[in-house]
Design a protein around this nucleic acid. Structure first.
Lengths: 113, 113
DNA sequence: TCACTGTTTTGATGACGATCGATACACAGC
DNA sequence: GCTGTGTATCGATCGTCATCAAAACAGTGA
């Protein structure tokens, strides 16, 4: 993603969001607004090495493979995760700066590091 | 809301979320997943005194009154804001602990205060 | 090149959500 | 009580989304 993603917005509690800022942020929050996607993100982020193969993610849910793939796409298009193919398997990892941006947007003292 | 809302979850990057945790968090993030609601929340939080009257919120958007009311209800049912009637007008304010919870869930070092 | 496995895309379907106008409810002032 | 204003609910509409089965695509190894 573009470099400004991690520093675009002051916390939403400090100044009113512009329509553009709200559109960008809401797109990301919407991606987090599904329990399966949240658990996928959590599984990837907390997985050993910071990345997880789709095959490991699929077995953790009751939903079908295509559905997992759909949710991974939504997370990917929201900039929250990145995928990379290595041989047979595709590995996903989180984009920490984007998570930090969202965290910061919700709470002034958060994620200043 | 219940007392545990502000401390229920370790950051989702540390441990995989349980289905219950994911359901609760995704419900809140879903409420943030709309640009109008995000701007409403921001307007309320950044407003002088930490609260805003519905009449002040309605004029800031192009959408109808019922639609604003609907979005305020979604935010309210997600526990992100609280409303209080004082005389003629109803004032909304944010629930800071819940915002801090969400911020913390996204980033380990965030919102420990 | 062929078969096999892993992942994504396509197409369809049922549920959900954003929005509106109309209506109902709550309070203030007369 | 009545009337007017502020806010919420109802009912309908139309678009979006989560999900699946089926098909397509990508890479591996025989």
């Amino acid at each position: 993603m573009s470099p400004e993603v991690a520093s675009c917005c002051t916390p939403l509690t400090m100044d009113p969001l512009t329509a553009d800022q709200a559109a960008m942020l809401s797109h990301r929050f919407k991606a987090l607004g599904d329990p399966v996607r949240l658990r996928l993100l959590s599984l990837i982020a907390s997985h050993e090495g910071g990345e997880a193969c789709v095959c490991e993610l699929t077995v953790a849910f009751q939903v079908s493979g295509p559905t997992i793939s759909h949710h991974l796409r939504v997370l990917r298009e929201a900039g929250l995760i990145e995928g990379e193919r290595r041989g047979t398997w595709i590995y996903y990892r989180v984009v920490p700066e984007v998570l930090r941006t969202l965290s910061h947007a919700l709470h002034p003292t958060a994620a200043l590091a």
